[in-house]
């Protein structure tokens, strides 16, 4: 007799823990053949709230870590993902990918994480400036992390889209609340397990599963979320964009083929940063600057 397989329970990821949704609800997405993918948490607006609270709490210490340290931690995510490659491949296959497609997606995801790990301690050097002002001041502009980023994972992929939006957002010291692909949610939760085992502090990334209709507007409207990033949202776009106005959330929609090597880069990082310009007087001892 065949062994009875232990089925995985897919929970959500908030503040470094794996609770079930506070609503106690679940949904069962089907793959293209009509097979159920599993029972996923049908998260509620309260879960969004809890996730934002966790993300805000984690922001201070994550953003204050050295860029080098964040780079090490992001690299560690890639290491962990590499070790669990097979699990992701199998989940992607379950969700409809061929084996070759699945392998390609996982490898690209790993490589993309490594790519952003390397940016952590470089983007500020590339993007900052010392501004030659005309007065006796030293003036420089550098980028700072923005705060809590709301991320809608791209719908058409389970893993690579999520990685492509999430990792550039957090590698600069932001924390994130991510809503997984509604129909392809499996890799998101398994990825949360990877994060949980790779030195990423609890709360830096929070991952929810559920329906876009229910979760996205609440996240976009949340007054303690600083930016909202997603793919173009079609019919939801205007509603989401208007919901984001109340606290003047920065909002970015990216149209990209996430499985392309080109869908990564410095500017995915810089969109979720704030530019700060600092002035200080320069004392000129010696030569009198009196005009007389």
């Amino acid at each position: 007799m065949d062994r009875v397989e232990i089925l995985k329970t897919y929970k959500i990821y908030i503040g470094g823990a794996f609770p079930r949704t506070e609503s106690g609800r679940h949904y069962t997405p089907l793959n293209s053949k009509g097979d159920p993918l599993g029972n996923l948490c049908l998260s509620s607006r309260k879960d969004v709230r809890n996730a934002v609270v966790a993300a805000r709490k984690a922001f201070g210490s994550w953003s204050e870590r050295s860029a080098f340290n964040r780079g090490q931690i992001i690299y560690r995510i890639a290491e962990m993902l590499e070790g669990r490659k097979e699990q992701f491949i199998s989940e992607l296959q379950k969700q409809g990918s061929s084996k070759a497609e699945a392998e390609k997606e996982v490898i690209l995801a790993i490589d993309r994480i490594v790519y952003y790990a390397g940016w952590c301690d470089k983007y500020n050097q590339v993007l900052s400036a010392v501004n030659p002002v005309s007065s006796a001041h030293f003036n420089f502009s550098t980028y700072e992390s923005m705060g809590v980023i709301g991320v809608l994972a791209p719908q058409a992929t389970s893993l690579i889209g999520l990685v492509s939006l999430l990792i550039p957002a957090i590698c600069s010291g932001n924390t994130a609340v991510l809503i997984a692909s509604e129909k392809l949610p499996l890799c998101a939760i398994t990825f949360a397990e990877v994060l949980n085992s790779s030195d990423v502090p609890g709360g830096v990334v929070n991952i929810l599963t559920g329906t876009l209709d229910e979760l996205a507007p609440g996240l976009a409207a949340h007054m303690d979320v600083n930016a909202f990033i997603s793919e173009p949202l079609g019919s939801m776009e205007i509603g989401i964009a208007q919901a984001a106005v109340d606290n003047l959330k920065r909002k970015f929609s990216y149209e990209a083929d996430w499985s392309s090597e080109k869908s990564q880069g410095l500017y995915y990082i810089s969109d979720c940063l704030e530019l700060k310009t600092t002035w200080h007087p320069i004392e000129n001892i010696g030569g009198s600057t009196s005009s007389y």
């Binding site: 501004n131 030659p132 005309s134 001041h137 003036n139 502009s141 530019l275 310009t277």
Partner: peptide, 9 residues
């Protein structure tokens, strides 16, 4: 203090 070379916002 303001200057054309200095980003403001």
């Amino acid at each position: 203090k303001f200057d054309p070379t200095s980003p403001f916002g």
